[in-house]
Design a protein around this nucleic acid. Sequence first.
DNA 1: TTTTATAAAAATGTAGATATTTTGAAGGCG
DNA 2: CGCCTTCAAAATATCTACATTTTTATAAAA
Lengths: 227, 227
Amino acid sequence: MEHPARHNLGVSAYARLKRDIIRGVYPAGEKLLMSRLKERYDLGTGPLREALSQLVAEHLVVAVSQRGYRVAPMSVSELEDIYDARAHLEGLIVELAIARGDVAWEADILAKAHTLAKVMDVSGPEEMLDVWDRRHQAFHGAIAAGCGSRHLLQVRESLLDQVERYRHLWLCETVFSSEALEHKRQEHAALVEALLARDAPRASLMIREHLMTPVSIIREVMLRRDK
Amino acid sequence: MEHPARHNLGVSAYARLKRDIIRGVYPAGEKLLMSRLKERYDLGTGPLREALSQLVAEHLVVAVSQRGYRVAPMSVSELEDIYDARAHLEGLIVELAIARGDVAWEADILAKAHTLAKVMDVSGPEEMLDVWDRRHQAFHGAIAAGCGSRHLLQVRESLLDQVERYRHLWLCETVFSSEALEHKRQEHAALVEALLARDAPRASLMIREHLMTPVSIIREVMLRRDK
DNA sequence: TTTTATAAAAATGTAGATATTTTGAAGGCG
DNA sequence: CGCCTTCAAAATATCTACATTTTTATAAAA
């Protein structure tokens, strides 16, 4: 009938740039030369500037007038602040979800938790980490969805994007030991239990702690790298 | 020494467009014709598209590929969700501010509260509403600042921008009676009292209720207009 | 070493070319 | 007659190429 996807170049430039920044293709603080980007993505300046403007609004890129764009810098202090903000926001969302979530919400959490717990190493650790991460996101997404607020979820997504670069450091560093995975699994199980029991204070505390655990590891990776 | 402000056209296009959208110069859902914008702001398509891309990221504008841009639609359901999200976020921020704020934070709140309480009608109601609104924002900003999290404050700003169009309806509608102003003043005083007493649950509840009060009025304005 | 002059590189903006969507009229069909 | 298609013209969005302005790098002079 219609073309499957008919978006303009700015949109795909945005998606590709964002992906590359989050994946660490460009180091934090690196200058994003127009000429280089034009070559790499085979696009004109127009669409690129559109994409960069959006990324500026999302704080993944900073613009200095007449001096182009650079990847937003990373720092330990930002690491701490962003994880702190995210943990507290997620705590709030969990409390609301417990107050507002219905049976379908509960069911979806159970479903996603089950899928996550059953991730098996079938085709190499690289592939498996990818699957695990996707299902992990889906699990937490299902929990958050219960809050029922489009705008809170939107704000949550925004912080997720901003935290992703730091989280990527963690995923790369942590050669995922099966103990760590087992530990996560237990935390998730306990969290599900608290959610279904509708114990808001406990669930909120648990998720805040759950989300803060990577911070110390990432901090050390960053300090080590900076030397 | 140097030029005071040397930003590119995209930046000023962004500021002007945002201002006009928030102020209701363009009705919600209206198509933003490139030709019209070019004429109105005397700019080329390049800078305009940059600005619009940023506004898309901030959810004030929506883009449909190959079909240009339009002002983000407004609806009663969004009104309710956005105020709900904002109230809960602000409640969280207040709790954190009470836990983390120092003496300078307390002092700044008192200062801003005082300035706000002493707004006098000196040069017409238009001017006075403007002054009151600015000081009101400063007062709430001072409270929020105590949470100490750059990212939470950034997320708060984002929601403030999104809510501003609805709030503007309220400001326009409410021919500010001195009773309403007096009522606000009392709410503010009580809030300051709870903050200084470091009573987190009470302050959080108070601010949530304080922020939700305009909703019913705005809803009625919107329902009346849609008919 | 610091300053200044100059050349190269880069960012930014505009005009116009291209592609897409919308409009509106004409024609066909129930 | 009302309603749906079809199709061309007009309007619109989008993109690129090039012109302009600004910054950065380089080298000579103080």
